[in-house]
Write a protein that binds this DNA or RNA. Structure first.
Length: 585
RNA sequence: GCCCCGGUAGCUCAGUGGAUAGAGCGGCCGCCUCCUAAGCGGCAGGUCGCAGGUUCAACUCCUGUCCGGGGCACCA
């Protein structure tokens, strides 16, 4: 509908004589929904934009534009208001046609098309597979998944990806932790490292390792602990201690034995994460292994490309990337003194690889604590000759859980560590997804557990779902009374609906395609939630004000056509959010 | 010190340069012989942190500043 008005304005501008509007003036007319019904349905600000350049006062110019508007049966009235707004009043027929479109397009109503086709890769969660996902990852999962769905709905060709950090030191620490728990299960007595993974899940992994391998990986505690540096509680360095343990493990187990432990732990953790996310309705097109960057030569390709562009130099035995030349605050090491490539080298290699696969837009959904990473990777992309602005990195702020007004203590150090699984079990997937998406991602989230569980009007999940279920209930009532629903007749008769509640609901329903386009452009899935709440509110208000199942068949069908259109849009919206649209509650 | 994100109603937060800044919760007052009251309506509640600037128009953009949170490794 917005497009319709935009086209009218554009042709009016083109038709204006040069003495009114000098040629060559650039204007980008903005057409927007009005807030107040007294201002019509849409307003355009172009007259105010062009007034100065055209050397005319805005209202005068607006008058000229209105005079040049091509006639349209879909617009009943055009007014000049305020400082020079042009207000458009749509005819009932315009709304009726749009409501008919909702029914015709169904699940595709609101789907957009890009002016130019583009492929987007949304990478999200990508948590180290060293333990179960926690509530912070849950937010990244919900936001990433819905952002990807939203971009796809808006017309992007989208792929979802999880980057597995399976080559780093953290994974070595997990392997060591698992092995130590395994040795304990074998009956050895050893202290657990201060920097190890202490969670009970490691004991579970160890128990399964024991079941799979028997005691083949067992070594006496004395051999494991011999001549190690002191751990932190003994006044030593916890990092040095755990790394020394890692070397010891490799030595005693041999490279292949160590690999077995490492890969076993990795496999179980990854399977756990995949299952957790799957149950949460979050899926990926690809799980990308960091290790393959090395084996496939992607890192070498990236380094070679940097070198070809003259962006690397050697200092102190290490190879550095000249990141400051691309806006980063300091230069970055890509190959260490000891010849090992850094994690940063993997990062830029991975992003170059994404570009090589043909993605135009790279979206990295990251935790807020990763913000320093963005400038670096962008600098790397630019240095390799890729456009820096192809990378976008929405930073997801932290989640705090509240129970009865009290903040729930979290953090890996405390034992009270709350996992995504626990949260989902407590409040359910629907409330979980919606609460995660309610706030803008750059706003810290206070997650109220009691509210999420409450089956009351306070809870936005139920409020929106209830609107959907209520329509289903009305249709059941209709069937119970033996009345048919004639959608074609209803759509045709929508133009006869004149009650303000009806106009408000039509306005809300037909806004959906605009909301999708805006939310996608802004990368703001939370806008969908706010819109759906508004739509549900317009419906509930209408429901309270008027009966739908009335004796007059024409009126009845018209109202039901409108209400089922609202139901369709609610369903489309909830679908994007990954929240169910129940038929009854 | 540098970088990122916030600062809008008592609380939690929306707000794509436009008209009188919105919603939910909390408070107060109303609405079911009627399609689910898991709902609806009304009232009260604001110097949009502060100061400049750009603009026909600033909560929105720019600069500075104060406050809160996070980040600044040859870790991953």
């Amino acid at each position: 509908m917005k497009q319709l008005i935009e086209q009218l304005v554009a042709s009016a501008l083109a038709a204006l004589p040069p003495d009114v509007l000098p040629e060559g003036l650039s204007a980008r007319p903005e057409v927007e929904r009005t807030r107040d019904a007294a201002h019509g349905d849409f307003a355009c600000n172009v007259a105010m934009q062009l007034a100065r350049a055209a050397k005319r006062n805005p209202r005068q110019l607006a008058q000229a534009i209105i005079a040049a508007l091509p006639p349209s049966g879909l617009v009943t009235k055009v007014e000049i208001a305020g400082p020079g707004f042009i207000n458009f009043f749509l005819s009932p027929a315009a709304y009726a046609a749009e409501i008919a479109r909702v029914h015709a397009e169904g699940a595709d109503y609101g789907r957009g098309r890009l002016a130019k086709p583009a492929r987007a890769l949304v990478e999200f969660v990508s948590a180290n597979p060293t333990g179960p996902l926690h509530v912070g990852h849950g937010r990244q999962a919900a936001v990433g998944m819905t952002l990807a769905s939203l971009l796809a709905y808006a017309g992007y060709d989208v792929a979802r990806e999880y980057y597995i950090n399976d080559a780093g030191r953290q994974m070595d620490i997990l392997a060591v932790s698992t092995w130590l728990r395994y040795l304990e299960a074998c009956g050895e007595h050893l202290p657990f490292p201060a920097n190890g993974y202490r969670g009970d899940y490691v004991k579970d992994v160890a128990a399964r390792l024991l079941a799979a391998e028997g005691e083949a990986l067992r070594h006496p505690a004395t051999a494991v602990l011999a001549a190690l540096p002191p751990d932190e509680p003994q006044g030593g360095d916890k990092d040095a201690y755990v790394d020394a343990l890692g070397l010891r493990a490799r030595h005693l187990l041999g490279e292949s034995g160590y690999r077995r432990v490492f890969d076993f732990a990795l496999g179980i953790m990854l399977a756990d994460i995949r299952e957790d996310l799957g149950q949460f309705g979050v899926t990926f097109d690809r799980w990308f292994s960091e290790r393959t960057l090395e084996t496939d030569g992607a890192i070498d390709r990236a380094l070679a490309r940097l070198e070809r562009q003259g962006q690397v130099y050697v200092k102190d035995g290490a190879t550095w990337f000249h990141a400051t030349a691309f806006g980063d605050e300091k230069d970055r090491v890509v190959v260490r003194e000891n010849g090992q490539k850094t994690y940063f080298a993997s990062d830029i290699a991975y992003h170059l690889e994404k570009r090589e696969r043909g993605f135009d837009l790279l979206v990295d959904v990251l935790g807020a604590d990763h913000h320093g990473y963005v400038a670096r990777v962008r600098a790397g992309l630019e240095a390799m000759g890729e456009p820096g602005d192809c990378l976008e990195a929405p930073l997801i702020q932290f989640v705090s859980l509240f129970r009865g007004g009290e903040k729930v203590p979290m953090g890996k150090r405390e034992a009270q560590f709350v996992t995504l699984r626990q949260l989902r079990a407590e409040v359910g997937n629907d409330a979980c997804r919606l609460f995660y998406l309610m706030r803008s991602h750059d706003q810290p989230l206070d997650f109220d557990l009691e509210l999420a569980k409450s089956r009351s009007s306070d809870n936005p999940v139920y409020y929106i779902q209830y609107a959907h279920a209520r329509v289903a209930s009305v249709l059941r009532q209709l069937a119970d009374r033996g009345l048919p629903l004639d959608l074609d007749a209803g759509c045709a008769a929508v133009a006869t609906l004149e009650d303000p509640h009806e106009r408000a609901l039509m306005s809300a329903v037909t806004r959906w395609p605009e909301v999708v386009a805006l939310a996608a452009a802004q990368r703001g899935p939370h806008m969908l939630v706010h819109y759906l709440r508004d739509l549900a509110n317009a419906f509930h208000t209408y429901y309270n004000a008027l009966s739908f199942i009335v004796d007059d068949a024409g009126l009845r069908n018209a109202r039901l056509a409108l209400v089922t259109a609202a139901q369709q849009v609610l369903k489309n919206g909830l679908g994007l959010l990954g929240v169910s649209a129940p038929e009854s509650m």
